[in-house]
């Protein structure tokens, strides 16, 4: 088969590949983080996380607007954005990776499936490998919820905590993720 035929056959197969893809997304995903120290507890939530998951290939992506994290106290929110995350310079946190443990065909059956997510996490403009365990819960009515809890160290992403408040902020921050995915048209 010459090169021209290979290209033609490949192009003819592209639509079949696209049809076979099962992609899910949310634009109202939830992420919260919690820093616990003896001096202070700091908690923030974000309900506007965008995520796309291709259940055929396992590819998964997240985008999070840093300024959309809301805190109970204005001072915490200001310090978080201006001093630590520098959200005017680094407006988003991103994750690109692969989800393993559940295949597209299993999503037709209700159940909770343990999964792992492995990829690159970019926070504060610093990209680091990241891995987390979680679950995918299928309710059998089209609802798919992904949940995970993991830890992130600010120091790993070059987030500098001033000495005066170092004891107020945990070295490792607990992050909770909850995504309710819908099938993409």
């Amino acid at each position: 088969m010459n090169l021209q035929k290979i290209v033609l056959v490949s192009l003819a197969l592209v639509p079949l590949t696209l049809v076979a893809q099962e992609r899910y997304m949310t634009r109202t995903g939830h992420i919260e983080f919690h820093s616990a120290t003896p001096l202070e507890n700091i908690h923030a939530e974000n309900d506007k996380v965008t995520s796309v998951w291709d259940a055929t290939t396992g590819a998964i992506e997240f985008a999070v607007l840093i300024k959309a994290f809301t805190f109970e106290k204005a001072l915490m929110q200001e310090h978080f954005n201006e001093n630590y995350m520098e959200s005017n310079t680094f407006p988003k946190a991103l994750f690109k990776g692969a989800l393993k443990g559940v295949l597209g065909a299993q999503l037709a059956t209700a159940g909770t499936y343990p999964v792992t997510v492995d990829g690159l996490l970019t926070i504060h403009g610093v990209e680091k490998p990241a891995k987390a365990e979680g679950t995918i819960t299928v309710d059998g009515k089209g609802g798919i919820r992904a949940e995970s809890k993991f830890q992130v160290k600010p120091a790993d992403h070059d987030i500098k905590i001033p000495g005066a408040v170092r004891k107020n902020i945990a070295e490792s921050i607990a992050v909770t993720v909850r995504m309710d995915y819908s099938k993409m048209p």
Partner: peptide, 17 residues
Amino acid sequence: CQGYTGEGMMPGDVILQ
């Protein structure tokens, strides 16, 4: 206004809180 969530091939929204 907190920005636009879209990134690369991911569609997004403009968010107001």
